[in-house]
Structures are given as structure tokens and as C-alpha cells.
Design a protein around this nucleic acid. Structure first.
Ligand SMILES: [Mn+2]
Ligand SMILES: [Mn+2]
Ligand SMILES: [Zn+2]
Ligand SMILES: [Zn+2]
Lengths: 145, 145
DNA sequence: TCTTAAATTAGAATTATTCTAATTTAATGT
DNA sequence: ACATTAAATTAGAATAATTCTAATTTAAGA
């Protein structure tokens, strides 16, 4: 009994944190956005494409258009509720973990997963070309079955 | 005089090396493939998309269909004459440098460039999930103007 | 409650890439 | 040289992820 209660609290922590980010952003709180956040954050950190979200929306019998799903994912990304990961040349992945971190990418399953930050250590970075500025460093460890 | 001669030799070295790879592959040596290799390798290591190649083909007044350009780039990649780099979610980049190496990606210009291998040192890699095997490790340093 | 800027939506458009199916060509054997 | 055949080339259609358009609805403040 107590155990189940604790697990329920954990799920809501992620959802509530994301809902708080939404509320403190300039974005309006709509039913579509609330439902998307509930879907995306209920299971803690993970990675998904727009199509994954579309399927989950259908499964929950919500009716949110694909255009809205794309709009929301992009706006959430712009306002640091989500992060986007581009590595596949034909799909954008979204990530509930907005902190800088690195990824495993399984080329067989096309699934992304986080690498614990402490598990990658870059001891030497190249000097950035003189006229450019550094944006981010992304390590992708490609794996397969 | 001598200097110009040396530079000309250098260009041909890259082209000839790629042509040798083509000849020793199971692919047939066609005029389209020969011309593409001349275009792609004449200036040493660089990075390009299919559309870049299409423009350069037009500029040289060759008539090679876009389908053939895609076919060739993909087959060259399969036979280690080229390497493909996937990072943009909407374009495949091809690379004349087939050795494992890392990249700068300028988000302003959408141009890729090589990082000297000795300029990136990864001192700690995560353990690969038990049921998976390592394919490659790719570091992308995103920069901007 | 009124107003208005923002959000949602269906469907069309865009764009990189792949596919199809007909034609041409390279390479091999006679 | 000529015939055979598998591979290559090609135009154009198809695909698929994403964005755009323009009409409608809604959230939130006055
Ligand atoms: Mn695509
Ligand atoms: Mn696209
Ligand atoms: Zn992640
Ligand atoms: Zn490169």
C-alpha cells in the first residue's frame, strides 16, 4: 500500500515539474498541452518521436491533432521543457531530460537512451575555429543488437 | 612551375585513390561514377550533401540524374569509398574521409568540418548495455557564427 | 462579459530520399 | 566482333517527416 503510494508520487513529480515549467513559460496552459505533458512525463526520463507521441495520444483516446503535437513539441523545446536530439537524418527525437548529456543510439531498434554524465569523460576538446562560438558537445555511442 | 605541378599531383592522388577503390570494388566503372569521383575527390577531404553534388554536376555541364547521384553516393558509402554522417534530421552528409573521426557542425552555415583526431580525447567511455555491441563513437561539436 | 492574441486544426505543401519500371551499358564468353 | 546478361541509369512517381496555411476556437486579462 505505502509502496504503491510512493511510486504514484514519483510519477507526479516529473509531470508536476513539467507543468510548473509550462505555467511559468509564456505559453498558455491548454488541455492539449496539459495532456501531452502528462503523457510525456509520467514515466520519467525518456526519448520519443512525434509519431510515438501520436500513437500514445490515440491509445489514451485523446484527440489532439498531429499538427498540435508538432507545434507543442517544438514550443516545449524552445522553452526548455523538452530537448531535441538530431542524429538520424530522418526523425527528430525529443528528450524529457533537458540537461546536457550524451546518448546511446541503437541502430537496430532506433532507440535512444541516456548515458550517465559521469560515464563519459572528454579530456581534450579541439580549439573552436576563431570566428565561431561553441554551442554544445554531443557524444553518440552507436550500438546494435 | 614546379610548385603548380606538385599541387596538381596532390589533387590527382585523392582522385586516383578513390578510383582505385572503385576498381577494386564489385561496382562497375561507369562514366557517371568516374565523373562523380573526380568531382568529389578533386579537392581533398570534404563534406557534402546529395544536393551539393547535384549543383556541382550541373556546373560542370555533366548530365547525371539525381537518382544516379543518390545511388552512387549510397553505393560508394557501402563500399567504403565514402562515409555518411547523420546528424541533421533532414539531410545526409557524405564525407570523403572514411576513417573514424569527429566533426564540428556549424548550425549557422550547416557545414561540417573535420576535427583532427588527436584533438579529441575521450578518457572514459560508458559500459555498453550487456546485450548490445559497440558500433562507433561520434562526437559532434556544435558551433555557430 | 468583451476583446484579442494565441492555440488548434484539417488538409495542403515542402523536401529529402527512395522506389519503379523501362532503357542503356559494361563486362564476359563465344 | 557479337551475343548474352546482370548491373547501371533514368524520369518520374511514391514516400514520409515536418512545416505551412488559413479558418476556427479558446485562454486569459480588461
Ligand atoms: Mn525523409
Ligand atoms: Mn524533411
Ligand atoms: Zn537523453
Ligand atoms: Zn569528416
Amino acid at each position: 500500500m505505502d509502496l504503491i503510494y510512493i511510486i504514484t508520487m514519483k510519477k507526479n513529480l516529473h509531470v508536476n515539474k513539467a507543468l510548473d515549467l509550462l505555467k511559468s513559460s509564456p505559453l498558455k496552459v491548454t488541455s492539449q498541452r496539459t495532456r501531452l505533458i502528462e503523457i510525456l512525463f509520467k514515466n520519467g526520463d525518456h526519448h520519443f518521436t512525434a509519431e510515438d507521441v501520436h500513437k500514445e495520444v490515440d491509445k489514451n483516446k485523446y484527440k489532439i491533432s498531429l499538427a498540435t503535437i508538432y507545434n507543442c513539441l517544438n514550443q516545449f523545446t524552445k522553452h526548455d521543457i523538452l530537448k531535441s536530439v538530431r542524429l538520424s537524418s530522418d526523425k527528430i527525437y525529443f528528450d524529457t531530460n533537458t540537461k546536457a548529456h550524451h546518448h546511446f543510439f541503437c541502430v537496430s531498434t532506433e532507440k535512444l537512451s541516456d548515458i550517465k554524465s559521469s560515464d563519459v569523460e572528454i579530456s581534450n576538446l579541439p580549439t573552436i575555429p576563431k570566428d565561431k562560438k561553441l554551442k554544445s558537445v554531443e557524444v553518440v555511442v552507436n550500438i546494435s543488437d
